[in-house]
Design a protein around this nucleic acid. Structure first.
Lengths: 202, 202
DNA sequence: TGGAAAACATGACGCTTGGCAGGTAAGTTC
DNA sequence: GAACTTACCTGCCAAGCGTCATGTTTTCCA
C-alpha cells in the first residue's frame, strides 16, 4: 500500500508523488494479482488515490500500463547497471555476470515485465509501448556486459549474453509456476560451467 | 469457428463433440486474444454453442480452463511424441532433437500454454490444475529424449534437455513479443553447436 | 490576499462479465 | 410410444469494469 505522504508540498512534488505512487501500485498489482485482475479500482485503492485522480494523469488504462512499462524498465535498468558496474574481468567475471543476469531476470520487477509482455502479445497498443523500452534495456545491458568480456570477440560475447538472457527468462517462467528450485540452481550452475568453458577455450 | 456437426448422433457423440469444440475454442481464444480477454461469451460463440451449454459441462470458468490445460497438454504431448519418435541417434540426433523441441515449444499450442502459465501464477486453482499435467509432459518428453542419447550419462542428458527446454521457452517468449527472428535462429544454431560439442566431448 | 489554476474526490453512466433459473429439444430405455 | 434422462438454449441478474462530468481542495502568483 503506497500511501501518499501528506503535508505541505509544492505542485510538482504532489504531481510526482501521486504519479509514482500510481505506477508503483500498478506494478504491485501486476506482481500480486496479475494483469487480468489489475483493475483501475484496485490500483488506485493501493495507491491511496481516487479513480478520478488516475484519470487526471492517464486518460485511459492502456496509457497507465504503457507508463508503468517505462517506469518498470527504468527501475530494472538502474538495478542491473548498479550490480553490473563492479564486475571482475576474465572467466570469474562471466560466471558472476550470469548470476547477476539471473537475479535481474528472476526478481519481482521482471515478474511484472513478464506479465506485461504476455498481455502485450494480443494488445497492439501495449505492445507498441513495450518494444522500444525493452530493446533499449537489452542494448544497455549488453553494453555493460561487453565491458566485462573485453577480450572476447564481440559477436561471441553477444551470443553468450543473449543465450543467457533467454535461458534465464525461461527459468524465470519455470520459477513462477513453482518448478523445483534445486533443479533451477543446478541448471544455472551447469550453464555457468559451459559459458566459462566457451569463454576460455572454444 | 469450430462449428458443431449436425445430423444423427448418439448422446456420447454429442457430448464428446461439443466438449472438444468448447476446449478447442478456448485454446483458439487464448492464442488469438489472450487469457484476460478470453471470456465465456467469446468462447461459446466460437464453439457455436450457447452459454448455457458450457455451464452444463463446466460449472465455473476456472473449471473450463483447467480442462483446457489438460486438452492442450495432451495435444502437445502427442505432437512431440510423433516427431520425436523417428530421431537418429548420435550427435546429429542431438541437433535434430533441439530443433524439434524448439518447434514444439514455439508453436501455437505452446503459446496457449504460456498464456495459461502466466495466468496460473496468480490463480491457485488454475495453478493446481496445470502443475501435474505439465510435469507429466516434461517427464514424458524426457523419456523420449533419453532414448536418443542412450550412450550419454543420464544426468548429463537431463541437463542438456532441461537447458534446451528453458532456453526455447525464453526464445518463445521473445518471439511472442516480436523479437528479431534472425537472431533467434542464430542463437538456436549456436546452442545446437554447443550441445553437440558437449555431447561428443566434454 | 484573492483569484486562477492545478491536483484530486465524487458519483453516475453504459457496458460486459460470470453465473444461474427455467424451458425446450433430442436421445435412451422399457 | 411413453417415461425418463441428457443435451442444449433463452433470458435474466448482481457485480465489476473503464470512462466521464462535475464538485472540492490545495498550491501558486500577482
Amino acid at each position: 500500500m503506497t500511501e501518499v505522504a501528506r503535508g505541505h508540498r509544492t505542485q510538482a512534488e504532489r504531481r510526482e508523488q501521486t504519479r509514482t505512487a500510481l505506477l508503483d501500485a500498478t506494478i504491485d498489482c501486476l506482481v500480486e494479482i496479475g494483469y487480468s485482475r489489475a483493475s483501475v479500482q484496485e490500483i488506485c485503492t493501493r495507491a491511496g488515490v481516487s479513480k478520478g485522480a488516475v484519470q487526471h494523469y492517464f486518460a485511459t488504462k492502456a496509457e497507465l500500463m504503457a507508463a508503468a512499462v517505462e517506469h518498470l524498465t527504468t527501475k530494472l535498468r538502474t538495478q542491473l547497471a548498479a550490480s553490473l558496474g563492479s564486475l571482475p574481468g576474465g572467466a570469474s567475471g562471466v560466471a558472476a555476470a550470469i548470476d547477476l543476469l539471473w537475479e535481474g531476470y528472476s526478481g519481482t520487477l521482471s515478474t511484472a515485465v513478464t506479465e506485461l509482455w504476455v498481455a502485450a502479445r494480443t494488445d497492439p497498443e501495449l505492445r507498441a509501448a513495450i518494444r522500444p523500452v525493452d530493446r533499449a534495456l537489452g542494448r544497455a545491458t549488453l553494453e555493460h556486459i561487453s565491458e566485462v568480456a573485453g577480450d572476447l570477440p564481440k559477436e561471441r560475447a553477444e551470443m553468450l549474453f543473449w543465450l543467457t538472457v533467454n535461458l534465464t527468462r525461461g527459468l524465470a517462467l519455470d520459477a513462477e509456476l513453482g518448478g523445483d528450485p534445486r533443479r533451477r540452481r543446478q541448471l544455472l550452475e551447469e550453464w555457468k560451467r559451459i559459458a566459462v568453458l566457451l569463454y576460455s577455450g572454444d
